[in-house]
């Protein structure tokens, strides 16, 4: 067989099997969701065609807009903070010293703790009448704060917990990318008199672009889909200040049994994310590393 023939067969088999599997178990359900968004469906009775009704209704749904706003707030703070801090952590542990592995493990551990349990522990930190934070304030003679029960502090409280939970994951990816930056480049620049900050900025950072693209896109998607910690810690309250898109979708589907309406929200979110990822690919990945 010629190389071309081999490549053709390999390409068809290697790409075909996974894509077929994805077509069945990932793409098909997505199309069902698209379809459901044009129906009213409560699971218990058959779907009914509703045209674009769900979408027009969404337009007038204040809470949906609120959810989008809250999600953007969450993303706008947690994404840059998370990316920046995990990069700093990666730089910190990117060295060969005794015990560095121990530090890496500690920084990674929050990632692997079950989210429900971690959220419960954080609730106890934040609790008004018996929490650790308010106890500390009390020792300093400051009156207590309703961390999770105040509209202005609830979202920051969730953001802090979420950043803590996911720092290690991105740190590992940055760490790997840092390790592959050739040391010679830094040394050459040092000889030329560049300080460590400038070396990092003009040499290391550009080399990190591919990792940055991956981290930013996956963090963007993850923060757009933030749900579990919101559900456990505040369930959207107080006064809807922490309702996020997926939280609202979940509630609409599984509490109000409006699967059609929930699907319409999911569809809109899908397109929002496509646009956001595209913009991000253009901005972060403009040194195009893809081809």
């Amino acid at each position: 067989m010629t190389i071309k023939q081999q490549q053709l067969i390999l390409g068809i088999v290697f790409l075909g099997i996974p894509l077929l599997w994805m077509l069945i178990w990932v793409v098909a359900p997505i199309f069902v969701v698209f379809y459901m968004s044009f129906t009213t469906y409560d699971v218990l009775s058959p779907m009914r065609w509703a045209g674009t009704w769900n979408y027009t209704d969404l337009w007038y749904d204040d809470l949906f807009w609120r959810a989008i706003g809250n999600t953007l707030y969450f993303t706008a703070v947690s994404l840059p903070a998370g990316v920046f801090l995990s990069l700093m952590l990666a730089v910190l542990v990117n060295r060969q010293l005794p015990f560095v592995g121990l530090f890496r493990t500690i920084f990674y551990m929050p990632v692997v703790t079950p989210l429900i349990a971690a959220a419960l522990a954080w609730i106890l930190f934040y609790e008004t009448s018996a929490g650790m934070f308010n106890y500390t304030l009390d020792l300093l003679g400051i009156s207590p704060v309703n961390w999770l029960n105040d509209q202005s502090t609830a979202m920051p409280a969730i953001i802090i917990m979420s950043v803590w939970k996911s720092l290690g994951y991105n740190m590992v990816i940055f760490l790997a990318a840092l390790q592959s930056v050739p040391k010679e480049l830094g040394e050459a620049a040092a000889i030329d008199g560049a300080g460590p900050v400038r070396r990092f900025w003009s040499i290391t950072l550009p080399m990190l672009t591919p990792a940055m693209v991956y981290v930013v896109i996956t963090s963007l998607i993850a923060s757009f889909q933030v749900f579990a910690q919101v559900r456990v810690m505040t369930d959207g309250g107080p006064n809807n200040s922490t309702v996020t898109i997926v939280h609202y979708i979940y509630r609409t589907a599984f509490q109000n049994l409006q699967f059609g309406y929930a699907s319409a929200m999911a569809t809109i979110m899908f397109f929002l994310l496509i646009v956001a990822s595209f913009v991000n690919l253009r901005l972060v990945g403009r040194r195009n590393v893809y081809d």
Binding site: L15, V33, V246, A266
Partner: peptide, 25 residues
């Protein structure tokens, strides 16, 4: 690239809404 972007796009729908279709399948 088209295939790649489509593959990437599949992660942009929240899993929660896919539960019922997946279950039926």
């Amino acid at each position: 690239n088209m295939i790649f972007y489509l593959v990437l796009a599949t992660v942009m729908i929240p899993h929660e809404v896919m539960l019922v279709p997946l279950y039926l399948m």
